[in-house]
Amino acid sequence: MRKLVRIVGSLAAVVLLAAALTHILRPEQQSQFEAQPRHDRVIETAAVGSLGFADSWIWFLSPGDVNRQFDLMVDTGVRSARIMFPWAGIQPSPDAWDWGQADLIVNAANARGIAVVALLNSTPGWATGGGPAITAPPATPELYGSFAGAFASHFAGRVAAYELWNEQNAVQFWAGPEGPQPERFAAMLKAAYPAIKAADGGATVVAGGLAPTINFFSLTLNPVTFVERMYAAGAAGSFDALGYHPYLFNPNANVRFSTAGSNSSRGLYDQLRGVMNANGDGGKQIWATEFGESTSDVDEAVQAERIRDFIVSWRSLPGAGPAFIYTTRDRATGSPNAQDNFGVYRTDFTPKPAADAMRGLA
């Protein structure tokens, strides 16, 4: 129930995100370009390392702060970043493309030797088939596959990996009366995977990071159940790694990822591995594309210890891939909203103890 409360509570943050996207990404404010097969300036990207940052808010930063944010990553010893690239911001209407902010971010990362994992989500209103912009899935798998292919074509050689969607087993990122739909998500994978591979064959494709939640009516679906149904719908062969978000969602300061029980995010990892093994994917990794702790929920010392424990423990798990800590910097340090305080740096760019913990392990 605590996990459900956190998920329902985070709906408010998603509403704010949608409002921000709607304001910032209005089509009339965009520079409109034709879809390009590839950007002229290609820099071969670095390989994805074992430790990175997951940073969704960097999309909304000014050029100066984008560069400063990446400098924080380098100062922390991190050379991989999982970054949200909202479909709604890049293709605001069917025939309009704006690569400006995306190019700025990818070029800034490449210049510092930071490997980019591109999270592709946030459906534009025109592509939802009547659902809410940003949070609804696309009306058809083909629409998403076309966007993913165009994105990969534009960034081939400059992006190391592509993550397809985010927490698709929970309503805040898969809005609609039916709730999470593993079969529909499998169809999206089958449309996007070949499109990406045709454009950027050497890149890794990650099936979107799953939330560690429970089966609760049409709001959330246990990640193990989700993956079982995803495989049953034919998803095998349409992703190279599975994404997972092993948050603790527990206010007890003594709880750690390494010591949690069988029904915890750690226990779910073992169950996910079992499902992958049973479906012939035992050789594929699970990537922790988000893990973090808000200093609205625990103090900074506990945040640092949980992150340190998680990184050490994750690296010991069979089949575990890269881990990405959410997130680089607070949106608003001291805000009562937990979503504003997940950074290992404060809003003023000063480090919390968690930054030192990451630096010691990077």
Rank of each mutant, 00 (worst) to 15 (best):
F155P: 10
A156R: 13
V159N: 01
A161K: 10
A161F: 06
Y162Q: 02
E163Q: 13
Q168V: 11
N169I: 11
Q172L: 04
F173Y: 13
F173N: 15
W174N: 13
W174Q: 09
A175Y: 07
G176F: 03
G179R: 03
P180D: 07
P180Y: 02
P182F: 02
E183C: 02
E183T: 11
R184G: 10
F185Q: 06
A186K: 11
A186W: 04
A187E: 10
L189G: 05
L189S: 09
L189C: 06
K190V: 00
K190R: 15
A192Q: 07
Y193L: 01
Y193S: 02
Y193R: 04
I196S: 01
I196G: 00
A198E: 07
A198I: 00
A198S: 12
A198K: 03
T204H: 08
T204M: 12
V205R: 01
V206C: 08
V206G: 06
A207C: 08
A211T: 10
P212C: 06
T213N: 14
T213H: 12
T213M: 08
T213C: 12
I214M: 09
I214N: 14
N215D: 15
N215Y: 06
N215R: 05
F216C: 06
F216S: 12
F217I: 09
S218Q: 14
S218D: 15
S218F: 11
T220S: 12
L221K: 14
L221T: 11
N222H: 13
N222D: 14
P223I: 00
P223D: 03
V224G: 12
F226H: 08
F226T: 02
E228V: 02
R229K: 15
M230D: 02
Y231S: 05
Y231T: 03
Y231W: 07
A232H: 14
A232P: 15
A232D: 15
G234M: 03
A235T: 11
A235I: 01
G237A: 07
G237C: 08
F239K: 01
D240N: 02
D240C: 00
A241M: 11
A241N: 08
A241K: 08
G243W: 09
G243A: 04
Y247C: 05
Y247L: 06
